[in-house]
Design a protein around this nucleic acid. Structure first.
Lengths: 147, 147
DNA sequence: ATATAATAGTTCACTTATTAAACTATTCAT
DNA sequence: ATGAATAGTTTAATAAGTGAACTATTATAT
């Protein structure tokens, strides 16, 4: 099997998955926030007390993009901004009660949906698959640093 | 292993891969077009004589988004729009010579890069991995239709 | 001790990508 | 021949991103 063909298959499959995950997420988010905003909210919930800079690194975007993003969440009362009194440059981010409710409810729905998909795979196939994904991710991160 | 954990691992890995692929593509596209624009250009090259509607379906976006997208490519002299004389509603899309050059050159670079990543996997692991990806994609497409 | 660097976050101006609705032009169907 | 359907575009709005300039604060180096 040729590299070129494998890459095309990889591209087609990941594009299709990406598109489907996105539209599924849109369906499951019963709120006026976008999938991007939900991803950021979810990140903040999983990394309480994180900063804008953390998010910028995690998502690979500039700080100004994050400011805009978290401002949208802030205006919807989904997150809190808490200035550090020891180092007043830092602003720590927290999810509000309203935000936690939204994340938890939406995650339930999304997990149920993904569970349905994964029902078509047996345990071994899933773990092998995720192991390969993680291996690929790790290689890419490394390759990035050495450049 | 719990579903929730598997999903988190899946999410983290795919996010990381998506981010890395994107930034790698940005590096490799030696032109003033975005990764989205390149993806559209690549699609047109692989599906010569396709229409805006085809692209809208393939990428899961509205027709007006595609009009905007292909207008950007058109203004950069990368594609041609050819009105069908038998059914003058249709506009068929073609990549110009300049566009073909850009796609071919960039694909070389991207394939070389991805080849480097895949060098860390053995043949069997890759095909298993891509098979699982395609299976997941197929399941999602189906699930979508039944809803 | 103070001037200079660095860091964290925000603002600003601009571009890209997207949506939904209204619109034009054309073809199909009864 | 009229009304419905289709293909594509335009328009107005929003979201998301960049990069540069800016504010405020802290660290460092002579």
């Amino acid at each position: 099997m040729e590299l070129r063909q494998l890459i095309n298959r990889y591209q087609d499959a990941t594009n299709s998955i990406y598109r489907n995950v996105n539209s599924m997420m849109k369906e499951k988010i019963h709120s006026d926030i976008t999938t991007d905003q939900f991803a950021t909210l979810q990140y903040i919930q999983k990394h309480e007390e994180c900063t804008s800079t953390d998010i910028a690194h995690a998502f690979g975007v500039g700080k100004s993009a994050v400011t805009a993003q978290i401002t949208r969440l802030y205006e919807k009362d989904l997150i809190k901004r808490v200035r550090d009194d020891n180092d007043r440059r830092n602003v720590y981010l927290f999810v509000t009660k309203k935000g936690i409710k939204l994340v938890e409810y939406t995650e339930e729905e999304i997990y149920a949906e993904i569970g349905k998909y994964l029902g078509h795979f047996d345990e071994e196939e899933i773990t092998e698959f995720i192991n390969s994904l993680e291996k690929l991710a790790a290689i890419m991160e490394q390759e990035d640093k050495t450049v």
